[in-house]
């Protein structure tokens, strides 16, 4: 059975697809898809640079395994 709302939904989906394609085209044109890999480095800075571990068990320096005697719980 035909329901006019189906037409509306079909048109809405079509419009969404067209809009998405346009957005993608716009993004590509304005260079938003360049240098994708650079973004992965934003979580690092001078103080916590690449190569700097930032976690450890209590009592140990970051990036090192705690010595047995360092364990705070006997």
């Amino acid at each position: 059975m035909y329901n006019p709302t189906y037409t509306f939904i079909a048109v809405a989906i079509g419009a969404a697809v067209v809009f998405a394609l346009f957005a993608f085209y716009y993004a590509a044109r304005t260079g938003q898809l360049q240098n994708l890999e650079e973004g992965s480095k934003v979580i690092f800075d001078e103080k916590e640079p690449v190569g700097q571990p930032t976690d450890a068990f209590p009592g140990a320096q970051p990036g090192t395994v705690p010595a047995k005697s360092d364990s705070t719980k006997s």
Binding site: E37, S40, I43
Partner: peptide, 13 residues
Amino acid sequence: IPKVIGRPVHSYY
């Protein structure tokens, strides 16, 4: 994962 070991993710793409 990247932050703890100090290495960017394998592939940002």
